[in-house]
Design a protein around this nucleic acid. Structure first.
Lengths: 331, 331
DNA sequence: CTCTTGCGAGAGAGCGCTCTCTCAGCCGGA
DNA sequence: TCCGGCTGAGAGAGCGCTCTCTCGCAAGAG
């Protein structure tokens, strides 16, 4: 026994298929008693529209792809940020009854898979989360005739509207805080320089140091906790006298705190530490981490709205959201 | 200019639509030179099959839903476990070219939405992640004519095949370790008792205490870090002399460590702590956390295979995976 | 009383594909 | 030589829906 079709509903209600369709789609040009008859038939038969048939004719699918373009291990296990983005975007899309198709694009083969999928018209739009500079996906997707938005400014210049936070401004906020506290030798653990976040936060750091006449002391990590620990050890070796460090994300800051502890440095007495992101774990470090908060939820929500707007011919202007310094005990 | 259809490909290759379809679907009953002609036409036109049209006739969609049935906040931000499950399942499904539709079912309204979506035949199968006892979703979905599998044994008895780890055995492992270390007053911070994991891990704890002639000291949390901290304070109040605690998940264990530190208890000297899950953060606590590891990736992978097998008439037997004690510094 | 207007409902085409059925053509065996 | 069997390709139905076009009919205008 197969699922009831609109045909069956129409027959039961004694109307034409067209009228039944009108009722299902909430058109108003149906007389109330006929409307009720159709609704009753739908209810009795347990009718649910066939989405494939519908989207075959409407050319819509009511679903959007969320493409996460990172090695999958890093994304989910390491960085809670991604989870929040995915969740917020899902919630926002639910409100307009769109589905989220989650795609992980790690390897080259999965890139091809994603491209094929998007090109196939499976989805009405694409949200791209890709921080990686060498990523060919933004360029590839922008060539397809599907609305695409990016979470974060794409690292390569490509014509995709995006939503980002003010990375430069946030970093400046953090470093200015350290300067204001009288710190003299302020180092940084920068993020990967092929990621926008990594670049911009380093730029912010440099801006403030230049203005306040301090020397920059830079180590580079890859946004993982482990790399933060390594970079901190390196910085301590390079300049044992440093009294502050701005870390380009909280995950690395956690690693840095660990290295500082192992090196016998007290935080914030000997070395002040400021992170970036304000992940949940930042509240639970020892001491709790002073960090730059950016509105992840709002950013994800804005991305969704940008995409939805785009589909309706809305503006394709980038959206930049402000950041905020959260002062805790570490600096 | 719209997308090329199979018709166009066929015309260009000088064959019938049926033959073009055969080539696209990799059927072997096509002469090589015709096959090549069709492939060339596909390439030249940039043809990609229309999935809606295809699934209209095949009654397949090549996508499965991953339904996460928890308040969305908790799921993603708090518990890295969920992320790992989602990632692993996605990766496994990629290998068979199926897409993942991610659905968050938090409120009652979104439950209805999920049900409607599944009933609509949008997906070929459902993976359900729901640990919550009162959740009506497992029962509701099992009534639909779609293959459904569950990550973790459903809390209410319902006819859904599932993949779970040996929660009871894992807890026994943990508590036996504490007993073997000579701990006398072994408390537990149990998980929510409307979740299978919460129940079973408490059962394991009780089993061992009973056998080793010790009194059980129980506080109950809700698997969040904060609740672990609260429960630990409560336990210390109830029984200041306790010398070990088995915490039903790592997140709560992190909170418990915090409370112990605040109470001036040394870990493991004064109080030994064993967690459960072996999340990444367990390696970075102070001291690193002894915990019970269960194979999350394998469990997710097994869930996918169970679902795929089900769709082909395979067995619907539950799968139980073993756990393992990871000894670090905290116990 | 006729003609227009407008509203509500039906007829029917067609979205792009798969798959069964049919058939042409070729081979080998009797 | 004829026929049966097999292989490879085409014809065409039909998946379930939307949407335009058409039409009947009632109401109001002239």
């Amino acid at each position: 026994m197969r699922r009831p079709t609109l045909e069956a509903v129409a027959a039961r209600a004694g109307v034409s298929r067209a009228t039944a369709s009108r009722v299902v789609n909430g058109q108003t040009t149906v007389a109330p008693q006929i409307r009720d008859a159709v609704l009753r038939a739908i209810d009795e038969l347990g009718y649910v529209p066939n989405p494939a048939a519908r989207s075959l004719v409407t050319q819509r699918t009511d679903s959007v792809a969320l493409v996460v373009s990172e090695p999958p291990t890093r994304v989910f296990s390491e960085d809670p940020l991604f989870s929040t983005v995915i969740r917020s975007a899902s919630v926002e899309l639910e409100t307009v009854n769109k589905q989220v198709v989650l795609m992980l694009a790690s390897s080259a083969s999965s890139h091809a898979r994603v491209e094929r999928y998007i090109a196939g018209g499976h989805v009405d739009g694409v949200m791209l989360i890709s921080m990686h500079g060498a990523d060919p996906l933004p360029a590839a997707l922008s060539r397809l005739r599907v609305p695409v938005v990016s979470y974060g400014r794409p690292a390569v210049p490509v014509d995709i509207p995006y939503v980002d936070n003010d990375n430069v401004g946030g970093a400046e906020l953090a470093v200015r805080h350290l300067v204001a506290a009288g710190r003299r030798r302020i180092a940084t653990i920068a993020g990967p320089q092929d990621m926008i976040g990594g670049q911009d936060r380093l730029t912010g750091y440099r801006n403030v140091l230049r203005d306040s006449d301090r020397r920059s002391i830079v180590a580079v990590g890859d946004f993982t906790r482990e790399s933060g620990a390594v970079a901190m050890r390196q910085l301590l070796g390079d300049d044992p006298g440093l009294d502050a460090v701005f870390v380009a994300n909280d995950l690395m800051a956690v690693g840095a705190l660990q290295s500082l502890r192992q090196a016998g440095r007290r935080v914030p007495d000997d070395v002040a530490v400021v992170g970036f992101d304000d992940i949940e774990a930042a509240r639970y470090t020892e001491p709790p981490l002073t960090t730059v908060r950016h509105p992840v939820v709002e950013q994800a929500t804005a991305m969704v709205r940008l995409l939805l707007g785009l589909a309706e011919g809305g503006p394709a202007d980038p959206v930049i959201l402000p950041t905020e310094l959260v002062v805790r005990a570490s600096a």
